[in-house]
């Protein structure tokens, strides 16, 4: 059943996603969002991770999709709209600033170095998310095999993400089915 403790104020949702949007360099956003929403008690890891898979499979950018998913979970349509708008607000303004000034900025190697550092830290956050998502996998042969197969299909064989998810998910769901009623 629905177990929403208290209604999360829209302003809190806006503030949370605005800051994430402002610092969203290098695409490593999932971990940060995961950390923000779980540490505030807005969602559990088990509620977040299906959204993470959904956001990656559906068309559209992962970061905007996961904002919509979290916003919808917290406050329905209004929550989704606020989260999406907040996520894009700062990048939108900065991209316009960049449009005017980019010729100067692009030529400064020191700025490029700083950006690469931000990107590396973002990968570190993704590593932490990878660790939590591995921990969330049930300790049984079937789910662990699916996890390894998914990893190998993408990392080693470079199959497209959408193909892998469309093949792996039905298999994984079927394997999880008999135990599906036991607990959450």
């Amino acid at each position: 059943m629905e177990a929403k403790a208290a209604r999360v104020p829209l302003l809190d949702i806006f503030r949370c996603f605005f800051w994430i949007g402002l610092f969203s360099f290098g695409g490593g956003l999932m971990p940060w969002i995961q950390r923000e929403v779980t540490s505030r008690g807005w969602m559990t890891d088990k509620e977040f991770f299906p959204g993470m898979a959904l956001a990656q499979v559906l068309p559209g950018v992962n970061s905007t999709n996961i904002s919509v998913y979290v916003g919808q979970h917290l406050r329905g349509a209004a929550g989704a709209a606020v989260a999406l708008g907040a996520m894009l607000a700062a990048p939108f303004i900065l991209v316009l600033v960049a449009a005017v000034s980019y010729k100067i900025v692009l030529g400064v190697p020191a700025i490029q170095a700083a950006m690469a550092g931000v990107a590396a830290a973002a990968i570190g956050m993704l590593l932490k998310t990878a660790m939590s998502s591995v921990q969330a996998v049930p300790r049984a042969v079937a789910p662990i095999s699916v996890m390894i197969a998914t990893f190998v299909a993408i990392a080693v064989f470079h199959f497209s993400l959408v193909t892998v998810v469309l093949v792996a998910t039905p298999i994984s769901v079927l394997l999880a089915w008999p135990r599906g009623n036991n607990d959450a």
């Binding site: 991770f49 299906p50 993470m52 998502s133 591995v134 049930p138 699916v146 999880a176």
Partner: peptide, 9 residues
């Protein structure tokens, strides 16, 4: 449950 290992991979 089925999505958890896929997401982890």
């Amino acid at each position: 449950r089925g999505l958890l290992p896929v997401a982890a991979g």
